[in-house]
Amino acid sequence: MQTFQRNIEDKVYKALEDDLRENILKGLLSPDKPILTEPELEVKYKISRKSVRKAIQNLCDEGLLKKTQGKGTFVIPPADRLKTNSRKNLKILFLTSAFIPGEKISSEYEEALVSGMSELAYRMNWQLSFSLIDNLSIRDITSQYKDSKFDGIIWDNTHSSHNKIISSFMGNGIPQVLIDRYLNNVCSVYFDHHTEITDTVSFLASLGHKRIAFINSDSGEIVYKEREDAFFSSLKNLNLKNDYYFRISHLKPFNEFKVLSSALNPPTALLLGGHSFLPPFLAWAGSRKLRFPEDISLICLDDSWLAKTNNPPISVYAEPRNEIGKQALTALERLINGQMRPGEQIRIKGDIIARKSCGLPKK
């Protein structure tokens, strides 16, 4: 019972702490006036005074807040924050299979991710270095950690083949955070793909669509299985048919595209499972003179330059990669300083951006 109660207390103060930290780092709380008082935060978040004080004290310890007797609790300005932050010399190693900064960024998604991490690292005066996963040596990385060359690792674009390396680093006590991956006892920051699908299906259903198709990747990665489960669950909850689900290869998508138009009752809306499917689908749709949304409404998972500039612009469910980068860096800093438990997970939600490719179903 005591353990259960402690877990509840951890969650309630952490929600307040995370909200305040995010608003501070985004510049939404001014250093010129105090934040809400402890009684006001207690009422707003419906938590105990003890939990409020714990959250505020943690942020004071991080060098983000300061208490001024008789006046309140204030945000420390960014310039002064660097002087007061006791962890200003934090050194982070970012491992990825996607790119090497300065040479090539594989997509605008990695670019946004690195941008968010770099922005926060600059604000906090942390050192951020990069390396390709394929170039690393377990022995060299472990040796560098023991020699205090870095304090922790953030992983991106990992696969199941990297699990052995991650486990080896865990055995050597190296703090690690995974982006968009799930692995027991390793902290992770990942996009909420379940909410991504349920929100998108609900959005299309709210426009009156009852025949919704979903083109998903046939990759064995867990993210695509999570999307699949969420899609069928959403259809069931909304009493919609599940006749229009396709798993296709990124290399040969055209056969499944043809099925959409050959069905006796073709779908009125299409959910495209990733920006990599958008160029071939638009090429195929153009060859058939399909119009959006007159012939079919189209929404894509992940925003992209093509989605923004297409005529008409394509509706998307946007993944906040910039924010994911910041949260991953913050999570690692907290893990290093004992403020986050190994295996803890942070889910980040995105938003629907409704553009001209979605409309009411064709009558």
Rank of each mutant, 00 (worst) to 15 (best):
K326G: 08
I215C: 01
E333F: 08
L329C: 09
L335F: 07
I314H: 02
T309M: 09
L306I: 05
S287M: 09
I324Y: 00
S261T: 15
N322V: 07
M340C: 14
G273C: 03
V223D: 02
N216G: 02
A331P: 01
A283W: 10
A328K: 00
F277H: 07
R341K: 15
L332S: 05
R321C: 10
F254C: 03
I248G: 01
D295G: 08
L272P: 00
P266N: 05
S287L: 09
N310A: 15
L235R: 02
K225T: 08
F277W: 09
S287W: 10
E226L: 11
S261V: 10
A331Q: 04
I324C: 04
L278R: 05
F277L: 12
P280T: 06
S297C: 08
L264N: 15
Y245A: 04
A283D: 14
L238G: 05
F257A: 01
P253I: 08
T330D: 15
A307L: 02
N237I: 06
G325T: 01
A307I: 01
R321S: 11
L278K: 05
G286A: 11
L306M: 10
L240M: 15
A307R: 01
L238Y: 07
G338E: 09
P280Q: 11
E333A: 14
H250I: 11
M340A: 14
L332A: 08
R211K: 14
P320I: 01
A285L: 03
F254T: 07
F281E: 03
F257E: 04
R341H: 13
I324E: 02
P320M: 06
S233Q: 12
L240P: 07
S249C: 06
S219R: 15
L235S: 03
N337I: 11
G325Y: 00
R291S: 14
D302N: 11
L240C: 11
V259I: 09
F292D: 02
N337P: 11
D218L: 11
S234H: 07
K308G: 13
P293Y: 01
L298Y: 01
N237H: 08
S276R: 14
S234G: 04
K225Y: 15
L260M: 10
D302K: 06
I215Q: 05
Y224L: 08
D218N: 15
P280S: 09
S304G: 08
F281A: 00
I215M: 09
K236P: 00
R291F: 09
A331V: 04
S262N: 14
S219N: 13
I212N: 01
G274L: 06
N337T: 15
N255R: 15
S287H: 13
P280N: 12
R227H: 11
L260W: 07
N337D: 15
F231G: 00
K225P: 02
D295M: 08
K289D: 10
L270H: 04
D303S: 11
L290T: 07
R334I: 06
L298W: 00
N255D: 15
